[in-house]
Design a protein around this nucleic acid. Structure first.
Length: 487
RNA sequence: GGCGCCAUAGCCAAGUGGUAAGGCAAGGGUCUGCAAAACCCUCAUUCCCCGGUUCGAAUCCGGGUGGCGCCUCCA
């Protein structure tokens, strides 16, 4: 069975384990989505892109995946942000949900099967809190409800901390009515001007962690397969989710915990206090969205990734190579019938290599190596075919092109029409560099006239002139084309 | 202070017991009027340092050095 071949690094055990879904052939995955108080940053984007590929690959392997990624739209930070703009918190959150959807589309993120919001699940949340109170692991205190950590002996099994050490560093916020410092809020009594709902404990709103316990249970069941998020969510968020869910339902919560590493800014942590947060939205303006996606996937999801203009430029250059190859290959094989028959070499080996890498805890960089081999093979067959049989070459190219499509569907890159992507990229560069296209075309015309007249000195002079404008020209069988010199 | 992660060529980056993937850059070549692109070749006896385990370690163990993260909101 395909799934058994896939191995996942489980934060719970700190080991790679075979992925064995609870229900044969089906995988439920819950990823902690954005708290929508602002635009998401590129670190968020990395996490969501990583899990996007996880979901795509599980489906590629034939698993029936239910992918849930929530929006936390009721939260302290949202309330603060709304106070500053004078906006209604729920309205502000809705605005940023829309913004996120736009950014996500640009990044080619799949729409999850379910994208639940906290504000739509208050009854579910109240029901779980009610269970926890009934089980004696949570208590009401002046309109707040707290989870009593000491009543859940397995607390901190995910982050592997010791309770006494945690206690040493704990502090109680003013106004909190906890029995013990480690206890955390499940429900917060309403303050004036805050979104609030009726509950058995009075009007109030959910605490931070409970929504994920409620929404995962609703859409995936009280026990499900994979739970994901950023590294920094391990403590306390995921820890608290485990405590709440397992104490409420008396069964194991998520089987596999997957955590995505950080993205930093050339070594420096991205943080609001340093003022070096890069919004996904802004990054999307600066670089081709697909290049950004390719960059985000260029390091294994658990390793740190460093964001820089150079790495972005590298990603874009690489994408250009892929698209130029595809453009060339498509021109060769599109709409042609090369008949049936044998293929040259073993074109399927690249996809096999790709799968082997991806089976191993979603090793995307390993998979990219296979992809490099695949593209080199396509280029060779197109430009310097080692065999004369054109039908054989054509069939092989078609097979390789088909494998590119399958791999693309997993990585979510180079799915565009190659010509369209190439032109879009050039147009953007033309705008950025302020290049006069009419002038370029005139110069090309002049140069071709000089070449026809064998006036190569003049032709070379024009080439140099265009180089000075930031334009590289290429003489091909289809005529002279040009592109903008990489900055 | 506690817990944990990371350290691979000029740069980016896989590899977690069997003798260093891939990419960029660089050098050489094929092709080209010249170029560009593409393709081919070259490019780490060695994986931060010191010990240990082993027939065998980049991979395991111990110690050190240097980065980083979490412990408070954070993807």
């Amino acid at each position: 069975m395909a799934a058994a071949r896939i191995t996942v690094f489980n934060t719970l055990t700190m080991q790679k384990e075979p992925l064995v879904p609870t229900r044969e052939g089906k995988v439920g995955i819950y990823v902690c989505g954005p708290t929508v108080y602002s635009y998401v940053h590129i670190g968020n984007a990395r996490t969501f892109t990583s899990f996007d590929v996880v979901v795509r690959y599980l489906r590629y392997r034939g698993l029936d995946v239910t992918y849930v990624r929530n929006y936390t739209d009721v939260d302290d930070k949202i309330i603060h942000a709304a106070h500053e703009t004078g906006e209604d918190p729920i309205h502000l959150a809705a605005r940023f949900v829309d913004a996120f959807r736009e950014d996500a589309r640009a990044l080619h993120l799949l729409e999850p099967d379910v994208s639940p919001k906290v504000s739509d699940h208050i009854p579910d949340i109240i029901a779980i809190i009610g269970k926890l109170v009934a089980h004696g692991v949570a208590y009401e205190s002046q309109g707040d409800v707290y989870f009593q950590v000491s009543r859940y002996p397995e607390y901190a099994k995910l982050s592997k901390r010791h309770l006494d050490e945690l206690r040493a560093g704990e502090r109680v916020q003013p106004g909190e009515q906890k029995r013990e410092p480690l206890d955390f809020a499940l429900w917060k009594a309403a303050k004036p001007g805050e979104p609030a709902w009726d509950s058995p404990w009075g009007r109030g709103r959910p605490g931070w962690h409970i929504e994920c316990s409620a929404m995962s249970a609703r859409y995936l069941g009280e026990s499900f397969d994979v739970h994901g998020g950023g590294l920094d969510l391990i403590f306390p968020h995921h820890e608290n989710e485990i405590a709440q869910s397992e104490a409420a339902f008396h069964k194991p919560f998520a089987q596999y915990w997957m955590h995505c590493g950080f993205l930093d800014l050339e070594g420096a942590k991205m943080s609001k206090s340093l003022g070096n947060v890069v919004r996904l939205r802004d990054a999307l303006q600066r670089v081709d969205p697909e290049a950004l996606r390719y960059f985000l996937l260029s390091t294994h999801y658990r390793n740190p990734l460093s964001f820089s203009d150079k790495s972005l430029a590298d990603a874009e250059a690489r994408l250009e190579y892929f698209y130029e190859t595809l453009s060339k290959v498509d021109a060769r094989i599109a709409g042609r019938d090369f008949g049936k028959g044998p293929l040259h070499g073993e074109p399927g080996r690249f996809r096999t290599e790709f799968e082997a890498a991806m089976d191993d805890d979603f090793n995307v960089p390993g998979g990219m190596a296979a992809l490099s081999g695949l593209f080199a093979e396509m280029n060779e067959l197109t430009d310097k075919p080692p065999v004369k049989d054109k039908a054989l070459v054509g069939r092989t190219l078609q097979a390789l092109r088909e494998d590119v499509r399958r791999i693309s569907s997993v990585l979510g890159v180079f799915e565009d029409a190659p010509e369209a992507w190439l032109l879009r990229r050039r147009d953007r560069a033309v705008r950025e560099r302020g290049i006069d296209v009419g002038q370029v075309e005139a110069l090309i015309g002049e140069r071709n006239a000089a070449r026809a007249a064998k006036d190569f000195a003049r032709a070379d002079q024009l080439r140099v002139q265009m180089k000075g404008l930031g334009v590289d020209i290429m003489d091909t069988a289809q005529g002279t084309t040009w592109k903008v010199t990489p900055a």
